[in-house]
Write a protein that binds this DNA or RNA. Structure first.
Lengths: 164, 164
DNA sequence: TATTGTTATACTCTATAACTATA
DNA sequence: TATAGTTATAGAGTATAACAATA
């Protein structure tokens, strides 16, 4: 997308998406802070809710997080009483993951925050425009081979998955 | 955007943008690797090209990078013979930044890579759709108070500014 | 012999703040 | 006294690989 004169840069889809993605994640992280959550822990709670009883390695695999990292992540959530590691019914090596009721309550609050975040992001868009934007982005995501719901940065510090 | 039944998550603008932004940056980084560049160094070269002769602190300020970080960043580019630090004409504390001819040549190559990246990203979109997508994203970016061309993650490791 | 979860180690990147030389 | 650039230090977060228990 080279421009001939003036060379006005940075109007490409790639740059805009990256710029916005980072900004959106950061903003979402700020919003979650009062709940002592961040985009990553939020995503974790969501995935556990969606597949309760699964062992750690299944979660790690689904989210593409190294198992050794999952340990520390879950340690924190368990210490805070949001997640429970129970013995697996058939495999004594494994530990089944469950949300506690406190975890469930906090997750519901976080979902509200996510909805607010989404609303803010799309404040200047009509419902039809938002729908169209989602469709366009979804086509790019498919083209890029992205699995729906799996944020490729979930293993990283700053950029996490803004949700809902 | 809570859904009542099934609770199918992750179809929000926020999540898609963040997911795609990260993926796009990573993909762009892969593409730049053969040139021994990454999104951040690419952005640096671009900005220097756009404002040659400026001192370091101006660049640091424009890109929101701490001055101490700028040092290491520029050290690398200078050692590779891509950027030159010349004495400032009026302020002997400052150093004016210039692209070397090698830097200019490499930047041109990188711009081609960026154009390829953009083309890949938008492969499934018509020209009109791409234009519309850019317009929609641009409106969100404005609403979020993002300065055009300044990637908020330029100071970070993994996520850099995919360009053009 | 392979796998689940855990721990330990080393490495990379970062911000903070002290420092110098000019202004 | 303030500013441009630099350097040093300490801290956070990460992957890698070794480890114990179980399959």
């Amino acid at each position: 997308m080279a421009r001939k004169s003036g060379d006005r840069p940075f109007e490409a889809v790639g740059f805009l998406i990256s710029q916005l993605g980072f900004q959106s994640s950061r903003r979402f992280a700020d919003r979650l802070e009062p709940l002592d959550l961040n985009p990553r822990t939020f995503a974790l709670l969501r995935h556990i809710e969606a597949a309760e009883g699964e062992p750690q390695h299944a979660l790690a695999e689904a989210l593409r997080v190294p198992p050794s990292r999952m340990v520390a992540l879950l340690d924190e959530l368990e210490e805070r009483g949001l997640v429970e590691r129970r013995p697996h019914p058939t495999d004594r090596r494994a530990r089944s993951l469950y949300l506690t009721s406190a975890g469930r309550r906090l997750l519901e609050k976080a979902k509200k925050v996510a909805a607010e975040h989404e609303a803010e992001l799309c404040a200047d868009l009509s419902a039809a425009e938002r729908k169209q934007l989602i469709a366009l982005l979804g086509r790019i995501a498919t083209g890029q081979g992205l699995a729906a719901g799996v944020h490729p940065a979930i293993g990283f510090k700053v950029v996490g998955p803004p949700g809902d």
